[in-house]
Structures are given as structure tokens and as C-alpha cells.
Design a protein around this nucleic acid. Structure first.
Length: 260
DNA sequence: TATGGCCTGTGG
DNA sequence: CCACAGGCCATA
């Protein structure tokens, strides 16, 4: 599920449901997480959760004692908040909070990662590029970051050190909006096209963010223009959507109205 | 740049 | 059975 909008939605959801409550119980429900999780995490028990925020595709759960639990959902992570003690399907970690509120890390593939940043520790230098939703992001910021990159723009967009938050689905969607061929070498993009690309990224992210009300969990796939739509007519020009592999990942695009 | 690994689930 | 999955890292 998680690219920037889903992670942002998850963080807001957790913040709204759980901030202000005190952590009472903590349990890993899968052996892989026991291996991957920090050993000193019991220090969090008894601490009040102050806030949940997003940094790139990470979430930071800040506790009153200054400890920060950092969570990355990877491919299939999500939060479920319940008042029942029954774990949902694929629950991999359990956080019991005051007031009988239970938070579950739900993650079928168990790829999510958690780490503890103890109080007083400096944030490790995340080599994340500018956030895709940063209002200050413009071509003057982004184009130089493309300058040395001969790789296709689609793959460069997935590099979190270039721009943070874009994933496989929204990279394709943004390029479709910007009418840019995903195979175009990143360094070839003019300032004008980078500006269009940023507009496409914003459009895509904002649309997905608007779906993040937690009535249904996930972003509505039927609102996507190209992703997973191989063979469907392009909604702009009716050309069948193509699917290619780039860097071992699927890219969907319109061969007619997306140009190099 | 490509490959494999992490893990499990789903759909053809 | 196989291919593939909204991420990312380590390795040749």
C-alpha cells in the first residue's frame, strides 16, 4: 500500500486515534519482526505517545520520554486500531494503549521495519531528497538533482534520495499527467518539463491523499489513469496503455501522449 | 545495472 | 504451477 499519501494517511490516522494515550503493552507477533526489531523497545512501555508524523515514507512515533519509534511499512504495512483485543488478520505487532485502544501493525508480507531512536539521540542523517509534497519544491530544486542521471526518469523518481515519497504507482501516474515518456533519461528533461512533472506529482499525491479518509483503507485503484491498466484505452487519447519493465518493476504508460 | 533477498498472498 | 506485488538493501 504505502507510498507517500498512504503513509501520510496512516500517520494522521494513528495520530488522531492514539496520540495522548500511554503505551501499556507491546508484543511482536511474528518471528521475523522479533529479529528485525530493536531489543530495547520495552523502554517505550509507560510512555505517552505525543505525536505521529511522517518523514519521507517513514513514520515517527514520538513518546513523552523523548524516545522515537520509527516505522517503515515497506510494501504491505498498515495500522489497524481496534477496541477489541482480537488481532486482525496478518497482525504482526501489537501495541496496547491506555483506554483499551489497541494498535496493530498489519503486514501480510512482514517486510515492515521498526527501529528505536532513543531519547537524546540525533536523527540519523536520512539521505532523503525533498519531500514530494513540499510546497517549495520547484524545477530549480529538482532539475539539478536529475542532471547527472542518465537512467530513465521513472527509475530516478523511485530513488528516495532524489525525491522522497514517490513509489511505483504514483511515478507512473505523475508521468502520465505530465505527458512524459517514462523511458526518457532524467538529465534530458527541460526545466519546463520538470515543472510539468512536479505538477503531475502534486496532482497525483493530492488526489491519493484525498482518498485517505479511513473509511476504506486503501487508495482507490479505479481512480488511477495508467497503473495496472495494460491494454485499457488511455483516457486522453484512447491508445491502449502499455506495460514495460524498468529496473525489474512494471511501468505503465501511454505510448502516444507521453513523449520523450 | 542487474540480481537476489526479505516474506506472504493473490490471481492467472 | 508460475508471475507478480504500492520498498528497499546488499552484493557482484
Amino acid at each position: 500500500m504505502p507510498e507517500l499519501p498512504e503513509v501520510e494517511g496512516a500517520a494522521r490516522y494513528l495520530n488522531a486515534q492514539v496520540a495522548g494515550r500511554t503505551l501499556r503493552h507491546l508484543a511482536w507477533l511474528h518471528p521475523s519482526l522479533q529479529r528485525a526489531a530493536p531489543p530495547a523497545i520495552d523502554t517505550l512501555i509507560g510512555q505517552r505517545l505525543v505525536r505521529v508524523s511522517r518523514v519521507a515514507k517513514w513514520q515517527e512515533l514520538e513518546f513523552a520520554g523523548g524516545d522515537v519509534l520509527i516505522v517503515h511499512f515497506r510494501m504491505t504495512g498498515d495500522w489497524a486500531v481496534t477496541t477489541r483485543v482480537q488481532p486482525p488478520v496478518h497482525a504482526r505487532a501489537h501495541f496496547g494503549f491506555s483506554g483499551g485502544v489497541h494498535v496493530w501493525l498489519v503486514d501480510p508480507r512482514v517486510l515492515a521495519r521498526l527501529q528505536l531512536r532513543p531519547a537524546g539521540t540525533e536523527p540519523s542523517q536520512v539521505r532523503a531528497g525533498p519531500d514530494a509534497l513540499d510546497p517549495a519544491l520547484d524545477a530549480a530544486t529538482l532539475r539539478p538533482r536529475f542532471a547527472a542521471r542518465r537512467a530513465p526518469i521513472k527509475q530516478v523518481l523511485l530513488d528516495q534520495s532524489v525525491i522522497a515519497g514517490v513509489g511505483n504507482i504514483y511515478a507512473a501516474e505523475a508521468l502520465w499527467h505530465a505527458r512524459i515518456d517514462p523511458r526518457t533519461p532524467a538529465q534530458q528533461l527541460s526545466t519546463a518539463r520538470v515543472t510539468r512533472l512536479i505538477a503531475g506529482i502534486r496532482w497525483t499525491m493530492e488526489l491519493a491523499l484525498a482518498d485517505q479518509g479511513r473509511h476504506q483503507y486503501r487508495t482507490a485503484m479505479d481512480r488511477l489513469a495508467v497503473y495496472d491498466r495494460e491494454g485499457d484505452p488511455c483516457v486522453r487519447c484512447a491508445t491502449p496503455i502499455a506495460r514495460i519493465a524498468q529496473g525489474q518493476r512494471s511501468t505503465y504508460f501511454c505510448r502516444r501522449c507521453q513523449r520523450s
